[in-house]
């Protein structure tokens, strides 16, 4: 790798420093407890606070407590797909091997959290709106995101040559990223049954601080949990690929010898 100081080259070399599986495993093992334990503690704290100590909403009553699961799940559903898109760029442009392994592992976790978002949304919609499901822009775009995850999961495993699967899935991840701004702005661009965001970058949150705190805690905790899961799975995947390599090389040697 030449030391030409272009941004592309430098970005590449920065990421390739962690392409070495041994170095990644060592770093990952050290990082893992710092993700896992705060994730567990913060999630339990946030959800416990939300479930038992935060006040009920003036019009929704106790049903508002579903928010403490639903909103973090929704945020991570989008964030997980954004991570897939980043992995796709790293894979397509820099051919980064770890990005491919990470993409394989992000897919199922992201699909699970999207399913959780849809399910809790349904469970919230039935008592409040009066319906399990409507085809409004927000709900439909999140359902599309769920199917994008499912497509990614199957595509990346669909080929005998894993490299082709990585390539195809990366293209899908990038193309599907178009859905992310649609999800985000659907409640502003079109009228929907789903209410607009309570927490925005520009204005004061239209939520009492006694509900905002537990929501922030559970969001932080569940995000760390997502990261911890992806890291653990990617570490396992790196080890598994090493096992594959070890298993195939001596057997070939034996075959040659025999």
């Amino acid at each position: 790798m030449s030391a030409s100081p272009t941004l592309v080259a430098r970005t590449g070399s920065f990421f390739h420093r962690y392409a070495n599986p041994g170095r990644f495993l060592k770093l990952g093992a050290r990082l893992q407890p710092w993700l896992t334990w705060p994730a567990i503690v913060l999630t339990l704290l946030g959800l416990g606070w939300g479930l038992f100590f935060s006040p009920a909403d003036w019009q929704q009553g106790d049903s508002v407590r579903i928010m403490y699961v639903h909103v973090p799940a929704a945020m991570l559903a989008s964030a997980g797909y954004a991570a897939l898109a980043v992995c796709a760029v790293l894979s397509l442009v820099w051919r980064h091997p770890l990005a491919d392994l990470a993409a394989v592992e992000i897919g199922p976790v992201g699909a699970c959290i999207t399913a959780l978002c849809l399910a809790t949304g349904s469970l919230w919609g039935k008592p409040m709106w009066g319906t399990w499901w409507v085809w409004d822009a927000r709900l439909t775009s999140v359902l599309v995101l769920f199917f994008l995850y499912l497509g990614h999961i199957t595509l990346i495993r669909a080929f005998d040559d894993p490299q082709r699967g990585y390539r195809a899935a990366a293209i899908l991840a990038l193309a599907g990223a178009v859905d992310l701004p649609i999800i985000k702005f659907s409640v502003q661009w079109w009228n929907t049954l789903h209410q607009p965001d309570s927490i925005t970058l520009t204005g004061a949150p239209t939520m009492s601080s006694s509900m905002l705190w537990p929501l922030g805690l559970s969001t932080l905790g569940i995000s760390l949990g997502f990261a911890a899961l992806v890291l653990a799975r990617t570490r396992a995947a790196v080890m598994e690929s090493r096992i594959q390599a070890l298993l195939s090389s001596p057997r070939r040697n034996q075959g040659n010898a025999a």
């Binding site: 999630t43 959800l47 479930l51 009553g61 106790d62 049903s63 407590r65 579903i66 699961v69 639903h70 799940a73 976790v109 699970c112 959290i113 399913a115 959780l116 399910a119 809790t120 469970l123 919230w124 039935k126 008592p127 949990g225 899961l229 653990a232 799975r233 396992a236």
Partner: peptide
Amino acid sequence: MTHLPYIAASYGLALVLSLTLALNA
């Protein structure tokens, strides 16, 4: 106006899902 079953189902689902993923990993 409590909708306890819906709340319990949401939290239960979250618990089951995170436990499954964590144990699997």
